[in-house]
Design a protein around this nucleic acid. Structure first.
Lengths: 217, 217
DNA sequence: AATATAATTTAGACAAGGCTAAAAATATAA
DNA sequence: TTATATTTTTAGCCTTGTCTAAATTATATT
């Protein structure tokens, strides 16, 4: 079907569209895919020929329906494999990204649906991100950013805006995990740092950290 | 470490060495890897530079210790993934080869050992072939070819010489599986076909088929 | 509006891994 | 032991996906 490189570009474009809600520029895509802008341009031409994206020179790029479907399949595979790695092989949530990055490209008509069944059709991956179903449908949960909470408000840590290994390791160190119940104790107006409380402890997090935490109220 | 292509060549050379017990020729390797002889020659040069094989022009090729170790890791990964696919995802033994062929190239320091642990350290894959341990050690079981049995002798179907999908499908159709207890009822001198009996039924198999069945007495 | 800066694309190159066709080496046979 | 056939290697080319450097287009600034 598609090459690994193609799948990686599709996935990257999809992720950026979700985040930025606009046409994706060559440069941003280059930094996301760890390549150079010129390489991106080359690939965009190929993807455009295959009707996976809409691409007009200098205008940035957008997934077509076909392209989005293809991207969602890759996302589905990635997240199901992450779930497998964490819940069956006992990896930490900060260790699975690179391996899932490889596993997501395994080609098979049937593998991923069998894997899903084996895992009992989980709806969310270890970072709280929704796992698209067979048809690319995603279960969206309404959450608010921790920054939006007022003093005294409570909620449950549902998912992360940034799931980089570094950030995950930070959360590990601070003993914060998905599903933790969080209460805002105080907000420091000077630097917007937030004093929070969980079942087990209290801590102060920076504005930057809080901005990465999405809360289900 | 090694590229997929390199790993595939190493595995192919290993398999052929096991089977033929001599230097492996360019042509044989080409047919095993589904490439052309000229491509094989190119790759052999690269593998020789990396000290994975001993290669003298026109003389065929042999794995070095390092090369054999590398090949055994690939075999280990292939067989553990096959075991996973059959025993966890409920694939048939005739459906897993192509997928395992991809999974065996996933790169990770820790993945395969965790997978092994998860699977409870199986010693044999779904085709009865031994799974090398972490250090490349293989458990060898003494078996004899079904052709060597005399009328009246009994044994257990332990492994297959040819594990191609076609042959596996044949065995499925004839209701023959690993661990089946087999008794030789009669041998037809005219064409060397063999009349056998299992727990559940009797059947006649050709010389060619019998030659692919290894029996533990 | 003209110009400086930033973003993007083009042109040309490279590495990996494959191919075909031709040349060279080895093996087989008369 | 030549002659023929087979096997292997070499030479040169192709595709994919990447890169650098240069050229082009868009954007920002004065």
């Amino acid at each position: 079907m598609f090459s690994q490189a193609e799948e990686n570009y599709l996935k990257a474009i999809y992720a950026l569209e979700e985040k930025l809600q606009k046409n994706i520029s060559t440069n941003i895509l280059a930094s996301k895919t760890q390549t150079k802008a010129s390489s991106v341009t080359d690939m965009l031409k190929k993807l455009a020929i295959k009707q996976l994206i809409t691409y007009k020179k200098y205008q940035g790029v957008q997934l077509t329906k076909t392209g989005k479907d293809a991207a969602l399949i890759v996302v589905r595979k990635h997240r199901l494999w992450e779930y497998f790695l964490v819940n069956k092989l006992n990896y930490g949530w900060d260790e699975v990204h690179d391996i899932a990055e490889q596993l997501e490209h395994i080609k098979s008509e049937t593998l991923i649906d069998r894997l899903e069944k084996f895992l009992k059709s989980p709806k969310f991956d270890p970072h709280g991100d929704p796992i698209p179903d067979k048809d690319g449908k995603i279960m969206r949960i309404k959450t608010v950013n921790l920054l939006e909470l007022k003093v005294g408000q409570k909620g449950v840590l549902d998912n992360l805006k940034d799931s980089s290994d570094e950030f995950l390791k930070y959360l590990n160190k601070k003993n914060l995990a998905l599903r933790d119940r969080i209460k805002v104790i105080d907000i420091e107006p000077f630097d917007n740092s937030i004093h929070i409380e969980t079942k087990t402890h209290q801590l102060v997090i920076s504005k930057k950290v809080a901005g990465n935490l999405n809360i289900k109220i």
